[in-house]
Simulated assay, not measured.
Amino acid sequence: MVNTQLYFIFLTVLNIFVSSNAKYVRSPGNDVSLTAALKHSLELKCIYQGLNDGGGFTEWYKDGVPVSSEKPGHYAVHNSDTESKLTIKVFVKADADVKIWSVKTTKSGFEEPLACQFGPIPIRPAPQYMDTGLSYEQLDTSHESVRRVQGDRLSLRCVVEPSLTEEESLKNIKWEYSPDDHEYSKLHDGATIPSGDQLVIDTVDKTHRGYYRCSVDNVSFTVLLRVKDRLAALWPFLGIVGVVLVLVIIILIFEKRERSTRKATIIDDDENDHANDPLVRLSNKPSDGENKKRAVKV
């Protein structure tokens, strides 16, 4: 009986010792100003640094509601013994309204570690789409393309949410160019920035082909500019005209050969008909008088 009591006392002390050595920390840490950009992903982590077998992570919650109950594809949770990661795949305005983000565990005394709670996540300004001023061009997704003919005018406005003042746009929005979407540098000659959020090329040329991006605090939106030759629209028409001319020439040559063949056939038929005519054969047959004269001469 005494041994049993000692055993339970030992387990209690061990549990207190283990629990006292359980430690959870969040990432990003409290010293980081946590913000999110709309339409971009964000990761929240709870890391277990205790001495026992694991953190016992179960589920992430937002204002007490499990994220697994939300629409599939918006959130993703990955648990291991040492950490639990919540990925907000596409941050939306509703996510900014959440007061508390938290993770729950099976660890006694740490069912919802305070060290891993996150407060409201403010939205930081970031590019959301490009506006060309043309209603039929929708550039809502980064790396879409816009097409212009040589000599046309191009206008790109970087739409940032939350919106910036004109002074903030000039200060914070950065425009860059790349021919291959790898290394970006300063803009081509002919591209101007009349205001911080707008890029204008008055006369588009083939040298302007490439990728243009606007960035705010390392969050960017990119558009591919494709430039067509001024005569590009005529090539289909010229191709059709060329095909028609070739067909006409072939038809004329064919008809000319057919006429020659028909003419030769008519001549042969006339000669055969002439040779087979009885009257012609009789007129060509020598008379008896002519035969006698030939015999006397001989």
Rank of each mutant, 00 (worst) to 15 (best):
C116G: 00
P194Q: 11
S178F: 09
Q117N: 11
T141Y: 15
V90M: 15
E83P: 00
H74N: 10
K186R: 05
Y184H: 04
S178A: 03
I88P: 04
S145L: 10
A76F: 03
L199C: 08
Y136H: 12
F91H: 10
E112R: 09
K104V: 11
M130P: 05
L156M: 13
R147Y: 10
T87E: 12
S80P: 08
E167D: 09
E112M: 09
P127M: 04
Q198K: 15
V98T: 12
I123P: 03
P122D: 04
A126G: 03
S163C: 02
L170S: 11
S169A: 14
D140G: 06
A94N: 09
F110M: 01
S135A: 09
E183V: 12
T132Q: 04
V149A: 12
A126M: 11
G109Q: 11
G109C: 07
G151V: 01
E176I: 03
K89T: 12
S145Q: 12
A76M: 13
E137P: 00
I121L: 08
D189W: 10
K85V: 12
K93V: 06
V92P: 01
N172G: 00
K186C: 01
P179V: 05
N79I: 15
C116K: 04
G109R: 13
G196S: 07
K85R: 08
L114R: 06
I123E: 07
D131T: 02
V103S: 00
E112F: 07
N79H: 15
D95A: 06
V146S: 10
P194W: 09
R148F: 09
S145F: 11
S69L: 10
Q138Y: 07
E176Q: 08
L139S: 15
